[in-house]
Computed example of a mutant assay.
Amino acid sequence: MTRLHHPHLDGPGAVRHPYLDRPGAVRPGPIAFAHRGGAADGLENTAAAFRRAAALGYRHFETDVHATADGRLVAFHDPTLDRVTDARGRIADLPWAAVRRAAVAGREPLPLFEELLEEFPEARWNVDIKAAPALVPLVELIRRTDSWDRVCVGSFSEARVARAARLAGPRLATSYGVRGVLGLRLRAYGLPAPVRPGAVCAQVPETQNGLRVVDGRFVRTAHARGLQVHVWTVNDADRMEALLDLGVDGIMTDQLETLRAVLTARNAWN
């Protein structure tokens, strides 16, 4: 990793991780993330969804991973197959041979995360570790495929992300879990709070339990620590505009055409 200039990342010791680059972009600007590949059409976390996102010009994808009973790493959000597929059962209790027969919306197969890395070699991946059994297989996959520059690991569990960072070392890009975000929010109010060193971004909801997370103070505090701020999951154009005006560095959305139109109007699309 090298120290590179970024308009928001000039705090002491700020390090620009290659994951934060926008490959192929012709102008600087915020990162557009296709959340679960663009979940609005009901085909979330499928290769078909990510192909559509890529065709629209997205280069950063968000996905989730679970490990099957035999240790295969599936790109899927829920712990069970029930909500979005034609099958039933907990992924952690099923072998890959059974999980692979499930179809999202009754027509699209569940992909292995390794297959997605291979099919989209230029893409950057934001990966949410949904359960502890997926942690070691994910780190091993990143190491085996030398995908250090292409993957940022996150989780609601700060302990889970911290463990991934310890196992992988400084080449791994990570975001904060809930505890890290809380520490950053408290620091934004001028209160002392511990925050894990080594993260490259804070990936946060705009609000949580009716309380605002992202405001100008939060963004400035993150930037002062050399962190980008990525906000999820924003599907309304007016909210996208307001967040971009605050200076956030990335937006995750299900509504791919909406975010592209907002960024295009601001001369910030790719």
Results as ranks from 00 to 15, higher is better:
T2V: 14
T2E: 13
L9W: 14
P12A: 15
P12M: 02
Y19S: 05
G24P: 10
I31K: 02
H35W: 02
G37M: 10
A39N: 01
A40K: 10
L43G: 10
A48F: 05
A54L: 04
A55K: 13
A55I: 00
L56I: 08
H60W: 00
H60D: 12
D70S: 03
L73K: 07
V74L: 01
H77I: 06
A92V: 12
A92D: 09
V99L: 08
V104A: 02
E118H: 14
E119W: 06
F120D: 00
A123V: 07
R124S: 02
W125Y: 12
V127R: 11
V127D: 02
V127H: 12
I129V: 13
A131W: 07
A131Q: 11
A132K: 12
V139C: 08
W148L: 06
D149S: 15
R163V: 00
A165R: 08
A165D: 01
R166L: 02
L172Q: 08
T174V: 14
L182T: 12
A193C: 02
P194T: 12
A199P: 12
C201I: 13
Q208N: 13
G210T: 08
G210Q: 03
G210A: 03
V214E: 03
F218L: 07
R220E: 15
A222D: 11
V234L: 04
G250M: 03
D254R: 02
Q255N: 12
R260S: 11
R260L: 08
L263H: 09
A268W: 04
